[in-house]
Design a protein around this nucleic acid. Structure first.
Lengths: 344, 344
DNA sequence: TTGTAAGCGTTATCAA
DNA sequence: TTGATAACGCTTACAA
């Protein structure tokens, strides 16, 4: 079983030096057309495969980006992965994906591992490791929909998302607006903006409203056990209102909708539901959910831009060009869009 | 901006040689406890990070596995990715994920790229590159739910899946069984077994049946445009039968269900629908789909076992131990389970 | 346009 | 138990 061919083998075969072979691969123009053909031929004869590991070691450039997501049961994250993979054709970066599962120590280990592979940058969607720690790694990093005080980030315009949800429910005749969201420890998370936007519109319209929270979940099934009691409480507590429920994810909206169906055989007329994400589960349902759709493709494009900017800054710095070494974190805000379904 | 510390730095700091530092990391017992402490201390002082790239180059072991999936709009593949990522805690392998998008040339390029990163193995779910070519790379490889003539694989027991779908529809009183599946070019694909299982049970039960096919799709929306005409044709052609429709994916089943709802406002009593996959879209719907659920977790576990077996065989071969170099491909068959919903 | 030689940060093989 | 030294396969000055 022959070992893989190397530059050295091609060099021996053609009579050139390793350097020329290297140049052939990196800047073909710098080799005469005739010699280019010779090398090309040798390459095929020897079935040359290439070894990027050696190239990385020598050049320091891995073309790897680490991607850390919190879970896979929210379809939002699947969509995010998908969109990032799609950027490969444009930028050439490969993605090493980790599922943090909400455990801070694991995520820290994963990050360490990614750094030791010399990834050129990190995209972080998981919530546990604080941004000041991420910033301290001195590696390009972009946060998406998470606490981002010390690092660049891309977020949905959660404030306007919450606001348009409230406005839409009001327009659909609701006189009690309820927002269901995860119980927050850190007030700087994006979800807080959603709550603020929701409440400020409610105040403005002078419509009664509530924010109900649940404790962090670990799976879709777990989420169900936490949401269903909340819905039951709503049914019992406010029988005489037309209730507009703004859920902080389509999963929650879906659970809400299903539970109402199971109790009443239909979506009762005193309920309106609106989700958040724009996931397939929303649009592909027999009764499509009204939802605030995040523009995942746009968010991912922006994240790549921000990350590549940082990667470029580091390359510039290394090649001695003048450069701002610690630029202010940049935050991009992507407006979500109201996607009207049948639940409002 | 200080460079990352290396073994050399630790060696200089402690007065040992690089070799000793290397041994400290790889076989700590081979260093005296006292010296171990010294090195440990130096490691912290210098904030040593490690460089796996260099380790890979020197040792040849990357701990990387390449994962090539055909698309991300079928939730099956998202679930597969998720399950593979979960194995990291058990086996330590990292995953480089590519989305083949059904283009043979891209997939071939991706595979080349993965090989040049010296991934230790390949998991292939995409359909384009034939298995004899995959086998020719002489790299450990496991196929999942695709043509697998020359390589090891894990598949759902498609025959029994198709059979139990037919049996279930028959038991639910259908007198015309229809199977919708992708138009096949290659008869060796797993889907063919599904068709066979379906038809053989129909023959056995002496119930009338049809297999309808559509041409390869590129997205969920595209799939809709291909499936809807088929459903319309079914409605027009066989008005007087109770039709049991077995769809080759939950997405197709979902499209079918939605279309029937849009035309009739409900699932008409002369229709029964059964999907295949067991995706969230099936179980989380207001009207949960009956479906043949693939045991993704079991399939992934088996795939990892088969792959690691091959990786181990290569390591054994390299260390000179006697070993069968080209063992027969192994094929594992995982039984899917009938998951009864509200559409039958 | 081509070649020489010195790395990149590990692991592996011998000796000591 | 430790150390000197040679790989691993490529990139990158610097020379020719």
């Amino acid at each position: 079983m022959a070992q893989n061919a190397t530059y050295q083998d091609i060099a021996n075969y053609t009579g050139f030096s390793k350097t020329t072979i290297s140049r052939y691969f990196n800047r073909p123009d710098s080799v005469t057309p005739e010699n280019r053909r010779k090398i090309e031929h040798a390459q095929e004869v020897l079935n040359y495969k290439g070894n990027k590991v050696a190239r990385i070691l020598a050049s320091g450039k891995t073309e790897f980006i680490g991607l850390i997501i919190p879970n896979m049961y929210l379809s939002f994250y699947g969509e995010v992965i998908s969109e990032f993979l799609r950027t490969h054709d444009r930028y050439g970066y490969k993605f090493i994906v980790f599922n943090g599962s909400g455990d801070e120590e694991s995520e820290r280990r994963y990050i360490g591992e990614l750094l030791s592979y010399h990834v050129e940058g990190l995209i972080v969607l998981s919530h546990t490791v604080p941004s000041y720690e991420l910033a301290s790694y001195r590696t390009p990093v972009v946060a998406i929909e998470r606490e981002d005080f010390y690092i660049s980030s891309v977020n949905s315009d959660n404030h306007s998302g919450g606001a348009s949800a409230a406005r839409h429910l009001y327009e659909r005749g609701c006189d009690l607006l309820i927002h269901i969201n995860k119980g927050g420890d850190d007030p700087r998370i994006p979800a807080q903006d959603r709550i603020d936007g929701f409440c400020s519109v409610c105040d403005e319209l002078k419509v009664r409203h509530k924010v109900l929270t649940y404790e962090g979940e670990t799976s879709y099934a777990d989420l169900e056990t936490k949401i269903i009691p909340i819905i039951d409480r709503i049914i019992d507590t406010w029988p005489d209102h037309r209730k507009g429920i703004f859920c902080s994810s389509d999963s929650i909206a879906n659970i809400t909708l299903n539970h109402l169906f199971h109790r009443f055989g239909k979506l009762p007329d005193d309920f309106r539901i609106i989700g958040f994400d724009g996931s397939p589960i929303a649009s592909r349902a027999v009764m499509p959910l009204t939802t605030i759709r995040q523009q995942v493709d746009v968010m991912v494009d922006n994240a790549m831009e921000l990350l590549i900017e940082q990667i470029q800054a580091i390359k510039d710095a290394e090649s001695g060009r003048p450069v701002t070494l610690h630029p202010e974190p940049k935050h991009r805000i992507i407006p979500p869009v109201l996607q009207v379904g049948s639940t409002t």
